[in-house]
Design a protein around this nucleic acid. Structure first.
Lengths: 218, 218
DNA sequence: AGTCTTTTGAGAGTTACTGTCATTTGACAG
DNA sequence: CTGTCAAATGACAGTAACTCTCAAAAGACT
């Protein structure tokens, strides 16, 4: 599973898939769960900022959020997951699959990335910066970013495979997904280490330009 | 530190850097250490093969190698490191830096990769296959491959920076290193999952061809 | 043979997780 | 409003990967 529980299956293709996943049926019991999840995350980030990621224990986080450690692990499989998981993968996938099949894949990615990031910028810029900064600075998190099941690389591979309508991806698809995944990660991390000040669209452009050029001149 | 202790600094540029690091001054005390390291690794791989990576504890490995757990951790910083560290990074770096500066970087990489792998093939094919297979199959290892300090990505970034004769790498260098690192990893892993039967040169060729083409047609 | 340094092992402690079970809490029917 | 059921929680015990400290053992060199 690459995301936190989607609570409801997506019924039909929404016009703007990035916005779409944000309105949930919002059951009654679910509100509490959501609030708990948010509280835990918020307290965790606060403690991370004060003491650093590695000096903060799960126990401390749980205490600060007023839940038991058991509960912490029911919400987040690992301490890393608290930082690394996000809810946007399915939206990315949908958006990418909605692109015309004859569009060069790099171009699709460029467009979707830009749109995605702009949305995030409006809604949770600060949290995104904090998270990505943590990822660059904590080796364990940087590594965790590449776990097979929720990495950008895996996301792109999924899309490429589905787009081609095949079961198993070809080697060329794997290589492509690896390259794009690595490169987009680099872009986002760079943007975050600059405090989110840099023009993200420009960054994405430079990144994909390099890929599309086949690295001439370097 | 990206490698196991080199025991002696490289005195001068060797004709074949890949071969070079293999003859050590071979001190007297060092032999025992080397033997211990090899024994631990060998026993570990044996146990991994029998029971799997995750079902094998460090304690078991230490027992099988007839050392204490303390000693295990003196030789390998983590259980992952046992699988992930290798001695070839410095050789790769040297080889890459010896390439003509005006050669396109992708071409340098392609050449050095091929040479490197051919050497490994002759000397430790089976171990390489086993290791890379483990890496593909165990999520923790796959993630560990990307820890900032010993990843292929970091290696390529080092070379690009030094080659340009600057202190801090540019963003373009970072992106390039990320892409090449991801893609070469993919090639090696694919080769290993095929049991090392596939033609590695051909695989490398396909991989770099894709990168050089800027992914036209995908 | 004696001294000095490096390597080793023993043991205690921390922390991220896992699994189990009893208790609580919200959902819903009547 | 009450009783019933399922889901969420907390308390607790256990495992395994590390970390630190210190004393014993072993190689190096005089």
């Amino acid at each position: 599973m690459t995301t936190e529980q989607p609570t409801a299956a997506l019924p039909d293709a929404p016009t703007n898939p990035v916005q779409a996943l944000l309105e949930a049926p919002l059951s009654l019991r679910e509100r509490k769960k959501l609030k708990t999840r948010q509280t835990v995350r918020r307290e965790a980030y606060r403690l991370f900022a004060e003491q650093g990621y590695e000096n903060t224990t799960v126990e401390q986080i749980a205490a600060a959020a007023e839940v038991s450690p058991s509960t912490f692990f029911r919400y987040f499989a690992t301490k890393e997951d608290l930082v690394l998981t996000d809810e946007y993968d399915p939206a990315m996938i949908t958006a990418l699959l909605e692109r015309p099949t004859d569009e060069p894949f790099l171009q699709s990615c460029r467009a979707v990335m830009t749109g995605m990031i702009h949305h995030l910028l409006e809604h949770e810029r600060q949290e995104l910066v904090t998270r990505m900064r943590l990822v660059t600075e904590v080796p364990a998190l940087r590594a965790g970013l590449h776990r097979a099941d929720n990495s950008p690389q895996e996301l792109f591979l999924t899309v490429l495979t589905r787009r081609a309508g095949v079961e198993e991806p070809t080697y060329e698809m794997r290589v492509t997904a690896a390259a794009i995944g690595a490169v987009t990660t680099e872009a986002v991390l760079r943007w975050a280490t600059g405090g989110g000040q840099e023009d993200i669209a420009g960054l994405v452009d430079r990144t994909f330009a390099l890929l599309e050029s086949g690295f001439v001149g370097v």
